[in-house]
């Protein structure tokens, strides 16, 4: 079953897996780990943005929340790091329930603004609660414990953490290609029709939001353990913005695009930092704007579109292509559905 499914697009999967395995040989291992974590974060965000049609601008709350909780568990309990990371993911999921409940019923830019506002509240709390979080200094001294193994080498940590990252990717892939994922895409493409078929769209969006947050928390936890600390920046809005940028850059609704976008942004940031460059934001921002202007579907999306139109074939499953136009894929607001004729 699973094998036959994998065989459907074997070249991409084999290439991706191969790259994931050799990455720390090609580039500085801590950077490789950063790419892996951000790639998972971007894919988790794409689950919402690309497949549900919801642009969240508050995912720093989940990535950062996962980072802090994983860090706190590791510092205070001494449990193996995967337990700490899973605790961070669970925390992110729980945090997403009230935030999602209050925001998924909003559309388009309102959803983005409200998620941003909630994430900034989380940032405020983390900053205030110094005793627990270390305030501006971040949470320092997070250990990497795994049954007494020596994980101090980033190269080793990468390979120990990789299965968790890959499990996160598999989860996103599974959700997108599940009956649930089919409903998400139908909500994205035509909310009114999904409702007319009897689907409680807000509850579906809420579950999508929680799943996306959980996987973002997983990524954030692995990131914090890898760095040995959780930074205040991880819950700041720029983190949300960076993740959105990665997805848009790579291609909304493509999953692979998020991976590509993450790799590009992390590499570029690293290059500029090592070069001692000052205004990193200006450079990445400019590149972002240029790429989005030239390749409307993002890099991956544009490449795939070219291949598809070249070969004239219809790709795989229905949700496999990006939603046309706006991130809020719902064409008709509830008021005034059915059109005045």
């Amino acid at each position: 079953m699973i094998l036959s499914r994998l065989a459907a697009r074997p070249i991409l999967l084999v290439a991706g897996l191969f790259l994931a395995l050799v990455l720390p040989w090609m580039i500085y291992p801590p950077v490789a780990m950063d790419i892996a974590c951000w790639a998972l974060f971007a894919c988790a965000l794409d689950l919402l943005l690309g497949f549900t049609g919801l642009l969240s601008f508050g995912h720093a709350a989940f990535w950062g929340g996962g980072a802090y909780v994983a860090g706190l568990v590791a510092v205070h309990s001494g449990l193996p790091f995967p337990v700490a990371v899973l605790a961070g993911a669970a925390f992110a999921a729980v945090l997403a329930v009230p935030i999602g409940y209050l925001s998924v019923r909003l559309r388009g830019i309102y959803f983005a603004m409200v998620t941003l506002a909630f994430a900034q509240m989380v940032y405020f709390l983390v900053n205030q609660w110094r005793d627990l979080t270390g305030g501006e200094n971040g949470l320092q001294g997070v250990p990497r414990e795994l049954f007494g193994l020596d994980l101090s080498d980033s190269f080793v940590y990468y390979y120990v953490a990789l299965p968790l990252v890959l499990a996160g990717f598999v989860a996103v892939w599974r959700i997108v290609r599940s009956p649930f994922g089919r409903v998400l895409m139908s909500i994205r493409d035509n909310t009114a029709r999904a409702q007319a078929l009897g689907y409680p769209v807000d509850r579906y969006k809420l579950l999508a939001f929680v799943l996306s947050a959980c996987l973002s928390g997983l990524a954030g936890g692995l990131f914090a353990i890898g760095h040995g600390f959780a930074s205040l920046e991880s819950v700041y809005w720029t983190t949300s913005g960076q993740a959105v940028m990665m997805v848009v850059l790579g291609g909304i609704g493509t999953l692979w695009g998020g991976v590509l976008g993450a790799a590009l942004v992390v590499e570029l940031n690293d290059y500029l930092v090592t070069a001692g460059f000052e205004g990193i934001g200006i450079v990445t921002g400019t590149i972002f704007v240029l790429i989005v202007l030239v390749f409307r579907r993002g890099i991956w999306g544009t490449a795939r579109h070219l291949l598809e139109t070249r070969s004239g074939g219809r790709g795989a499953s229905p949700g496999d292509r990006p939603p046309g136009g706006a991130p809020d894929g719902s064409p008709a607001p509830t008021e005034g559905v059915g059109s005045p004729v």
Binding site: R174, R177, P179, F180, R182, L207, S317
Partner: peptide
């Protein structure tokens, strides 16, 4: 059935 995000479509 459509709640099952862990099943194949």
């Amino acid at each position: 059935l459509t709640w099952r995000f862990w099943r194949s479509h």
